[in-house]
Structures are given as structure tokens and as C-alpha cells.
């Protein structure tokens, strides 16, 4: 029942934790918890948002006990595989640099803002879905999303990066 969802959960866990190790640990921990509740799972109508909420709750539970790492891991070029299919080599470099800058600046957002950007703007959850997952009114999410994007744009503008260099 859970197997088809593991890859999506892993990607989301990676976005949350910024670490492949922590992503594996999060997913493993979640699966351990959920398999002991398989009767409850079988009654869940829409499993994906339910699992996402469970993963988020687990992440928050663990995150609150962990100081944010001071290590600057930089940008892992080995995972920069996503590409604009119609972009040339120069645009690819610009896109990669811009994503590097975005990844760094996302760390300057507060946790609520960062999680919302991950779920809405990166993982394409709708606000209605996120409202259920985070148990937060849509109006609050819209305001938060607006502030998050504005802060991200401002921090990118304050640097040397041009947003127009994206693909």
C-alpha cells in the first residue's frame, strides 16, 4: 500500500531536511510508524496528502530538537539534473547558478515560509491541499506565500543575481 508513495515521500523529505541521509531516516521512521497502524491506513481515502501530513509532522517533531547545521554544504552539482528542455548551454549555466542562489536564500526564510514554498512552488501542491496538510487557513497561506516570495526576490535582488537569467 505504501510502496508507490516512497519515492515521493523521499523527495519531499529531502526538500524538508536538505540532506539525503536525513531524508532516508525520515522516510524509514515514517514507514516504521505507519506499518504498525495499517488498519487505520486502509481507511484513509486520499493517502498522498495524509502521508504528506504525517511526514511533515514527523519532520517538525525531529527538527525542533535539532539546531540548524552551521555547515555550508554549498550546492551539490551532482543533483543538478533537472533542466529546461529548450535551454542552451549558457542558459543551463545561468539556471543552475540561479538555483544555487535560490537554494541558499531559501535557508534565510523562516521554517513556515520555507516549507510552504517547497510544497506549493516546488512540489506543486495546491493551496487547498496544503491547507489540509498544514491545518492552516488558505488566507493565511496566501499571505505567507506572498511574503515568502517577496523575501526571496528581495534577497536575490540584493545579491548579484538577476532573476531574468532563469530559463
Amino acid at each position: 500500500m505504501l510502496a508507490p508513495h516512497v519515492e515521493h515521500l523521499y523527495h519531499l523529505a529531502y526538500r524538508f531536511s536538505r540532506s539525503q541521509h536525513d531524508a532516508e531516516d525520515l522516510v524509514q521512521e515514517l514507514l516504521v510508524k505507519l506499518y504498525s497502524r495499517h488498519n487505520e491506513l486502509s481507511k484513509v481515502k486520499s493517502l498522498k496528502p495524509w502521508l504528506t501530513r504525517s511526514l511533515y509532522n514527523l519532520y517538525i517533531d525531529l527538527y525542533r530538537r535539532k539546531e540548524r547545521s552551521p555547515i555550508d554544504h554549498g550546492y551539490d552539482e551532482t543533483i543538478s539534473a533537472s533542466a529546461c528542455t529548450d535551454a542552451g548551454p549558457q542558459q543551463e549555466v545561468q539556471r543552475s547558478e540561479m538555483q544555487h542562489a535560490i537554494a541558499k536564500q531559501m535557508d534565510t526564510l523562516n521554517e513556515n515560509q520555507r516549507i510552504l514554498l517547497i510544497m506549493h512552488d516546488i512540489e506543486s501542491y495546491t493551496l487547498a491541499e496544503i491547507a489540509v496538510i498544514l491545518d492552516t487557513p488558505i488566507g493565511t497561506l496566501k499571505s505567507r506565500l506572498h511574503r515568502s516570495r517577496a523575501k526571496l526576490k528581495k534577497s536575490l535582488d540584493d545579491g548579484t543575481f538577476s532573476l531574468n537569467s532563469a530559463c
Binding site: 529531502y14 539525503q20 543533483i79 539534473a81 537554494a103 512552488d121 516546488i122 532573476l163 532563469a166 530559463c167
Partner: peptide, 12 residues
Amino acid sequence: ALMQALKSMPAP
């Protein structure tokens, strides 16, 4: 541009 870059943020 920002939205497009976010949409294509890489993940391992």
C-alpha cells in the same frame, strides 16, 4: 523566472 526556477529545483 523565479517560479520557473523553483519548479525545476533539482533533487537527488
